[in-house]
């Protein structure tokens, strides 16, 4: 598509402004993560200093950052795995079969993505409380509890993305395998999955990023045992002051994997994020 020169210039101007808006605080913060405590908030800001890792050491060991990192990994990877196990077959069904109210179901799934987390989090909290008191099933502040809750925003995304990948493949591919001696599941396993594999990886990574960044549901439903990295970042903002250097070193620990994954995946991500528009 040819875009007129003026429009292209406009697009670049907007992108540059947005990049500045996003990058300047991130960069300034990231620099602070390497500053010794005395110059965290010096005025004017110090730009030339000897970088130190003492903030990282503090948050990682003294304040048990490694524990939060572990929790975040368990919850993110666990919920992505569950979302894929449930979502990939569901996406295949949505792509291939028309069943009663399949269309309405799909729309409902998409609408789930637009619900603010508090609308999901508080009922889950009440539900978990009820389960705990009524049936003795403890889900509050447990990994399974959080993993279940995270399905509310991961599952729709998995189904939506994977449905697109499946729909692109000709149905004749499985049908051919079915005539050639395989069951539908066998055909799915042997011919469809190898083809959509890159799509599954892209879906997994995007979902991992969403789960990794999640803050609000964890705030409501996690506790001492399951606290995640984003939650721990919050602990450096206390009533009287903000521990800038510590806060930003946690932020860096959170951000780095996201940036790396995004770079690895940037092409598929654009595709995954635009499914709704392009269809």
């Amino acid at each position: 598509m040819r875009v007129p020169r003026s429009e292209r210039i406009l697009a670049y101007v907007i992108l540059i402004v947005m990049a500045i808006l996003v990058l300047v605080p991130v960069l300034a913060g990231s620099v602070t993560a390497f500053k010794p405590q005395i110059i965290w908030v010096s005025s004017p800001p110090t730009w030339i200093f000897e970088p130190t890792l003492e903030n990282f050491e503090f948050v990682f060991f003294t304040r048990k950052g490694w524990l939060f990192l572990r929790n975040s990994l368990i919850i993110s990877i666990g919920s992505v795995v569950i979302a894929l196990i449930l979502g990939v077959p569901a996406a295949y069904a949505f792509a291939r079969f028309r069943f009663r109210s399949s269309k309405a179901l799909m729309q409902w799934l998409i609408s789930l993505r637009m619900i603010p987390p508090i609308v999901v989090g508080l009922p889950f909290y009440a539900m978990f409380l009820y389960l705990e008191r009524g049936l003795g099933v403890g889900l509050r502040d447990t990994f399974p509890g959080l993993i279940i809750t995270y399905q509310t925003f991961l599952l729709p995304l998995v189904i939506w993305m994977m449905r697109g990948y499946f729909a692109e493949l000709p149905a004749a591919m499985e049908e051919s395998a079915m005539v050639e001696g395989y069951t539908r599941l066998g055909a799915l396993w042997r011919v469809v999955l190898p083809v959509v594999w890159p799509g599954i990886v892209a879906t997994a990574i995007l979902n991992f990023i969403f789960a990794w960044n999640e803050f609000f549901l964890a705030l409501i439903l996690a506790g001492n045992r399951t606290s995640t990295l984003p939650m721990s970042a919050g602990t450096y903002i206390v009533r009287t002051r903000v521990e800038w250097g510590n806060l930003f070193s946690v932020n860096l620990i959170i951000m780095v994997p996201v940036i790396v994954l995004t770079i690895i995946l940037r092409r598929q991500l654009v595709k995954g994020l635009t499914f709704g528009i392009l269809e």
């Binding site: 004749a172 049908e175 051919s176 079915m178 050639e180 011919v191 190898p194």
Partner: peptide, 20 residues
């Protein structure tokens, strides 16, 4: 019977090779 048990083979119009 399931397709696989019918002893037939089929060539499709818009599909020829498993891509992987």
């Amino acid at each position: 019977l399931a397709p696989k048990d019918r002893g037939v083979a089929m060539v499709f119009q818009n599909f020829s090779m498993y891509p992987t």
